[in-house]
């Protein structure tokens, strides 16, 4: 099993064409593209929780949607148990869809407001033929109890639930098809901290009980650190750093990881002393990427080499990858 990971992404790119006006088309202006995910290679082992972190526009959500098939990758292969999902026909893909399920960020817009919890779960079980009709009620109760809801709540509409409870419904829906992988796209970002902790603990508990593999996407470094055993840091579509959680947080190799860690507001006494920002400048446009390393305009260590040549993601030490010409020695801290 160790040489075929459960999920392997090989040079996956997802590119979107920028819509052109009629005038531009008549003038034969070349089409512009936005490469949201740029040659990402990742392995996710069975039982792993891989955290994907990065700022908005770094391609983390696009990557998730590419993996579950909402977007078609422009190039590259998505291997699930050795089979390429991207090359499958719709029917084949659909037969496979139960294996990878997604929990969405916004528990308000990802549930149909006119369907009761029971209907939401029923629909899914019926469409995928996962459950004989006479078993349906039992299975729904089982799913609800798994996420900490009760049978009495099954016939209520989403509006009767709080944000945290709705996210539990979203998780129950993802679990209905007995998936092997759950992709959780910012599942706790819309929730208050006290509720956030409830949902995080639920995810960890379910993962252990059901042996799930989780791809956990978040912009919150502390949440990712808490839940993941491996972390990939993304910036403008590329993986910048990848490795086991604890060493990566203790000793970031990529300057971007280091800056992300320093920028996040913390509750320590030292954090109060900080007078200057960790980084200056904004994210560059993802359509007109900088030459060389895409992080160089904001990087405090950039050299001429960085301005000219894009660094490859290479294995710096076993299991630790970094895309930088000048990785930080012993971490930036």
């Amino acid at each position: 099993m160790s040489n075929t990971p459960l999920l392997r992404l090989e040079n996956v790119s997802t590119r979107f064409a920028i819509p052109q006006g009629i005038l531009d088309a008549v003038r034969k202006k070349p089409k512009q593209y936005l490469t949201a995910v740029d040659q990402v290679t990742l392995d996710v082992e069975s039982g792993d929780t891989l955290g994907l972190v990065g700022e908005s526009g770094c391609g983390k959500s696009t990557l998730a949607k590419t993996v579950i098939g909402l977007y078609q990758p422009t190039s590259g292969r998505i291997l699930f148990q050795g089979e390429d999902l991207a090359a499958m026909t719709r029917q084949q893909r659909r037969a496979r869809s139960g294996d990878i399920q997604m929990v969405f960020q916004d528990p308000y817009s990802s549930l149909n407001p006119r369907m009761t919890v029971r209907q939401v779960l029923q629909e899914e079980l019926r469409v995928h033929d996962m459950c004989p009709p006479e078993e349906m009620d039992r299975r729904i109760v089982e799913l609800l109890e798994m996420v900490g809801l009760t049978e009495q709540q099954a016939d209520r509409l989403p509006s009767a639930f709080s944000g945290g409870q709705r996210q539990r419904i979203g998780i129950a829906r993802a679990l209905a098809l007995n998936p092997k992988i759950i992709i959780a796209d910012e599942p706790v970002s819309a929730l208050d901290v006290s509720i956030q902790a409830q949902v995080i603990n639920l995810l960890i508990e379910l993962q252990q009980k059901l042996g799930l593999t989780v791809l956990f996407i978040s912009h919150d470094l502390q949440v990712v650190r808490y839940i993941s055993n491996r972390v990939a840091v993304m910036y403008l579509g590329r993986t910048m750093e990848l490795g086991e959680t604890d060493p990566l947080f203790a000793h970031p190799l990529h300057p971007y990881t280091d800056i992300l860690l320093k920028a996040a507001p913390r509750m320590t006494a030292e954090a109060r002393q900080k007078k200057t920002a960790a980084i200056h400048g904004d994210l560059p446009s993802p359509i007109h990427l900088p030459t060389g390393c895409r992080f160089h305009p904001r990087c405090p260590y950039a050299t001429d080499l960085c301005r000219q040549t894009e660094p490859e993601l290479r294995e710096v030490c076993p299991g630790r990858f970094c895309a930088c010409h000048h990785p930080l020695e012993g971490g930036g801290v």
């Binding site: 700022e55 912009h219 996040a264 507001p265 900080k274 920002a277």
Partner: peptide, 10 residues
């Protein structure tokens, strides 16, 4: 985003 948040705080 965190890096921008950091700038606005300062």
């Amino acid at each position: 985003d965190v890096t921008i948040q950091d700038q606005i705080i300062r």
